[in-house]
């Protein structure tokens, strides 16, 4: 028996509840690694209210795909650890399964508009670059080669030369200093940094990989 569609569904009327609009889906779903053009065709035929409600299999699938895309972009912005050389090249390593490199690059470009930003994607083996003018390109080369190549064309900039010192130890010290043992809350900590995030390139062996200010390896 076919289920009747409730035309007066609250989500449709309010238009601001869960889920995504047709435009958002059409714009963002192609970023998913498992995307096929047929999917967009199917989505166009389904009313928005059904897609928003996650009641059907296709709606569940679409919302899951959107969630995976947005989460990956967000996590990469949060946990990508970058370095900067004295020629104004900001570089780091990311692990992006989906096509969200442009979002991550733009995020860094907004913060460092004078820098050239190079992010190596471990998943695809390519390096994404955004220059000072905001032009994005992807090069099939390692991060080291790309950073060297880009740096050659730039002279040393005093501003960036001024902050050339090891920051890793500084952050590790700051991180340790903020721990209040009386407030220790293992469950909350694990919830805030999911295990999956420890696999991100920036987090590998990073200072966050610890509990009670010890590295995970100390427990293994």
């Amino acid at each position: 028996m076919k289920k009747e569609i409730n035309e007066k569904d609250p989500l449709q009327v309010v238009g601001c509840a869960k889920g995504h609009s047709h435009e958002e889906l059409i714009h963002n779903l192609p970023r998913h690694y498992n995307y096929t053009p047929n999917l967009i065709q199917k989505i166009k035929e389904i009313p928005e209210v059904i897609l928003r409600n996650s009641g059907t299999l296709i709606a569940k699938k679409v919302n899951r795909m959107m969630r995976e895309v947005t989460t990956e972009a967000y996590r990469s912005k949060q946990f990508t650890r970058t370095e900067m050389n004295n020629r104004g090249v900001l570089f780091g390593v990311v692990l992006l399964k989906h096509r969200v490199m442009d979002l991550v690059l733009k995020y860094f470009h907004e913060r460092w508009p004078e820098c050239i930003i190079c992010l190596y994607n471990e998943h695809s083996g390519k390096t994404g670059i955004i220059n000072e003018r905001g032009v994005i390109q992807e090069i099939d080369s390692t991060l080291k080669n790309v950073v060297e190549g880009v740096s050659k064309n730039h002279s040393v900039i005093p501003y960036f030369d001024d902050i050339q010192f090891s920051g890793r130890e500084i952050f590790e010290t700051l991180y340790k200093s903020q721990f209040i043992s009386e407030r220790e809350n293992q469950n909350y900590f694990k919830r805030m940094i999911p295990d999956k995030c420890f696999e991100l390139p920036g987090m590998r062996g990073g200072v966050e990989k610890r509990f009670r200010n010890k590295k995970i390896n100390d427990y293994l």
Partner: peptide
């Protein structure tokens, strides 16, 4: 340099969460 537009992002969490 820097932005407040995307402020609210957390870059790490201390062991107390």
């Amino acid at each position: 340099i820097g932005a407040t537009a995307s402020a609210g992002i957390c870059h790490s969490y201390s062991p107390d969460g």
